[in-house]
Design a protein around this nucleic acid. Sequence first.
DNA 1: GAGTTCTCCTTACGTCGTAAGCTTATGGTG
DNA 2: CACCATAAGCTTACGACGTAAGGAGAACTC
Lengths: 227, 227
Amino acid sequence: MASPSKAGAPHRVRLNRERVLATAIALADAGGIESLTMRRLGEELGVEAMSLYNHIANKEDLLTGMIDAVFAEIELPSHSDNWKAALRKRSVSFRDALSRHPWATALKDSGTNPGPATLRHHDRVIGTLRNGGFSIALAAHAFSAVDSYIYGFAMQEKSLPFTTDEEAATMAHLMLAQLPANEYPYLAELTAEYVLRPGYNYGNEFPFGLDLILDALERARDAQPAG
Amino acid sequence: MASPSKAGAPHRVRLNRERVLATAIALADAGGIESLTMRRLGEELGVEAMSLYNHIANKEDLLTGMIDAVFAEIELPSHSDNWKAALRKRSVSFRDALSRHPWATALKDSGTNPGPATLRHHDRVIGTLRNGGFSIALAAHAFSAVDSYIYGFAMQEKSLPFTTDEEAATMAHLMLAQLPANEYPYLAELTAEYVLRPGYNYGNEFPFGLDLILDALERARDAQPAG
DNA sequence: GAGTTCTCCTTACGTCGTAAGCTTATGGTG
DNA sequence: CACCATAAGCTTACGACGTAAGGAGAACTC
């Protein structure tokens, strides 16, 4: 029943690095990074696991390539916007990318050398700051602060054991029932009166911290010796 | 040949969950989380791998327990300090803990339910903010912003492929030589004139972002409708 | 069209987490 | 003290993992 070829022409679709990476990303998106195995990836591509090694060096190379592909999805800061607007846009885009590919957040460590898309991204962010009047040192500080926030936020978001608002509410109710309110009174209060409010969604916390940092960076920039 | 016992008294040292967790943490600290296998952990404890299952449910349970042990190491915010000083101290302590146990940063996701030390920690942080005059909503915002920053910073720090300053310098020189300066001019500039400066250490970036956020939170607190 | 190279497959190895079932040590009863 | 239930540890085994080695066939080069 599974005899696809048209007329005696099996003619397999050739593999290449891009197809391998794209399929690997799709698999990781769908089932989490732990569901991405060489055998399953091969299966998805209609090929045996070992054939993949003609296009990638090993699994770490695969993961590195996936990370770089995620970075390629991030909207680069536009040089026509002012630094703050540009940085804000790319930060939201960054968060969106990490949210679409939650496995990417945790994978940063295994990654050794950044790929070209990653380098390009970093270069443009630093360039935006420098052109916006940040000294080298302050640009380095700012870069670290903003990206740490984004990474950390994405990680916390991913670690939540629910996705939709209803799931969140159910989960919060459960937790609230479980945790002894007199042992963790503040946690209980916050859960009951904030998390359980209809429409609560942790993802909505993102802009607060982002703008907090961007506004503070603007003040730090203006306080510089003079650009 | 393998008859170790001294004088008819083999008398194995009994295992327990604490010893298992402590040894697992030591192993992960020393060789990275990927070097922590049930067999190696058993070996370290003078026991077969399967014996560990008398004290932990499975590997995920082990990892969850390890995370909670890390949280237990974090200095809780003191109620006698003002909120900002208290939060700053615990944030530095938090970063130190994640720096001592880099594997903990990435493990957050696998962790499903937080342990008691984790809950206690969260409760105290929220309590510090509430007593410091933060509304419930603002406390939630602040908690998210600060902890996202800390997590993200720890993750970036861990992902650096070097530890000591000299290693960093060597690596930066290498990278600088590799990356085409005209393709990534801003990155090259920052590397050459900031990262390669003697005494540079990425870890030193931490206080900048932390104080940036804490100061901004203070302003946000003071701008509240009135506490 | 002959030779070379690249792609893909088969088989196999060592390592992982852990299920099942055994043996031995421990500690509570008479 | 003897007795024995329970808990702690050991042995063996299974299926999944990443990937080394080497062979078969297709696709390009000249």
